[in-house]
Nucleic acid binder design. Structure first.
Lengths: 264, 264
DNA sequence: ACCAGCGTTGTCAATATATCACCGACAGGG
DNA sequence: CCCTGTCGGTGATATATTGACAACGCTGGT
């Protein structure tokens, strides 16, 4: 529950594309951990190369070690390189921003994106963490990720990201059940203002959802026609990725979506 | 010295391209840590997405979190994408395998490679950890990485990787001083049998070496001519990368190598 | 049935940790 | 110039987390 290792690793969550370098006090404030503790944890992670400290500014940032680890993982399990071309196709088909995410601890990790070519588009922060309860991708995974995952998320606290975010356990359960009926998920402005998401689950070889593919559209641009188009494309992309990863769909899911996928 | 965080993160070192999935007992054996402790550490890292456990085989592997972190870092500081094309050129010029590495905690982390096109070539394990004392890249960084780094490494234990590895502190110091005189480093079979390395340091904007570029050649193929060619190409590549990263060479180094670089 | 190995859980003493206050340094304002 | 507010970093101590050992249930092979 409260091991120092998770506390240390939680610090890494605060580094983002927008703020890639953070000071000691800043990190302590955001994480709510004592400065001294943060200092020790950062020191430990620096020893392992997970973070590094700028010699002059004394700011901390993610270290070269994360690049190394990613290379090891990507060489052994080339997910990104499999997913990327499919996302490119998906984005081209729908004209909107597409992204894929995988289960990563207590949330989803965005691991690949393809931004829309349009001037007005949904722009994702690279490496963003996607909560289960407030994103279309999260709902898709929740619906097909097994009872253990669902129970864990339902019993956690659901933070409101916008005024549309579902924060009631019962409501979330209802939404998940709806997704289980439909075979894909849809969410409008529940994670970010003016962003509409449609997502479908990706399965591992045990038939459990391990991630999701999603298309994010500016809410005002989401017509019924676009919705129809996006839904089919997302389902097909998810289908292709599942196969590419050697995953296996549960029968009930296959039966659900084959009708919706359209001809491709 | 022995914080639990570093112990936990040390476990990650055991995952490699060759063995991307490891069991609990296996990890405990290799790290010399108790099974129960390893179990707890892995659990903690799994919560943060750094590792994930296969549902069926119960094996652990690096998780999607490392991909996310690498994306965040690479988006903010696009090192790999800057380095890769230069390595490609370097490999083409020399006909051998080129790679770049950065300081990552107590060792160097290989962050990009370009393998030789030849049938017989030096093949690097992706994401390998390179010791300072037994690799050409390590020597290059040691020579120009500042006194603090040098002192730390000299006072650590130097493990013999081959029968040619320098394990005596005094010998290592002599080799480092030689590199400081030369401006580049050379090592023959000190890290791996039949592998010859020539490396040059890459500098950050404070004028301290933060990494190295290297060309690895099969020892038997390393003639005087090839040596001359490789040396110039490596120095030029390191020069270009330093500039690309916004780094700054110390004057004494610039004076040293401008003569050696050849015309380019 | 047996054995050997696995992942996992429980216990309890020992140790590394969280918390607090403090330090010197730096920057801006009065 | 001092005063105040930061900053990053450093001890001291009570406490919670950890490490070690043993045992558990389980699986697969013999």
């Amino acid at each position: 529950m409260s091991s120092t290792v998770v506390k240390a690793l939680m610090l890494l969550e605060h580094f983002s594309e927008d703020e890639p370098e953070l000071g000691l006090s800043e990190l302590a404030r955001r994480s709510g951990v004592d400065k001294a503790a943060v200092h020790r944890m950062l020191g430990a992670m620096a020893e392992s190369g997970l973070v590094e400290q700028q010699a002059d500014s004394r700011l901390y940032r993610l270290g070269a070690g994360v690049l190394r680890l990613a290379r090891v993982r990507e060489t052994a399990f080339p997910i990104s390189s499999i997913v990327q071309p499919i996302l490119d196709t998906l984005s081209a088909e729908t004209g909107e921003t597409a992204h894929a995410s995988l289960i990563s601890g207590r949330a989803l990790a965005n691991i690949a994106t393809c931004e829309s070519k349009k001037g007005s588009r949904v722009s994702l922060i690279a490496g963003e963490v996607l909560p289960y309860h407030s994103t279309a991708s999260g709902l898709a995974v929740l619906a097909f990720g097994g009872d253990a995952l669902l129970k864990r998320v339902l019993s956690s606290s659901l933070r409101a990201k916008t005024r549309f975010t579902v924060t009631e356990t019962s409501q979330l359960r209802a939404r998940v059940e709806a997704v289980q009926q439909l075979g894909f998920s849809e969410s409008d402005q529940t994670n970010e203002e003016d962003v509409h998401g449609i997502a479908a689950p990706v399965f591992d070889r045990t038939g459990i959802a391990c991630g999701a593919v999603s298309v994010s559209t500016p809410s005002h641009r989401m017509t019924d026609e676009q919705r129809q188009l996006t839904m089919g494309a997302v389902l097909r992309a998810a289908y292709t990725i599942t196969d590419g990863l050697g995953g296996q769909r549960p029968r009930k899911y296959s039966d659900l979506v084959t009708a919706l996928m359209g001809d491709a």
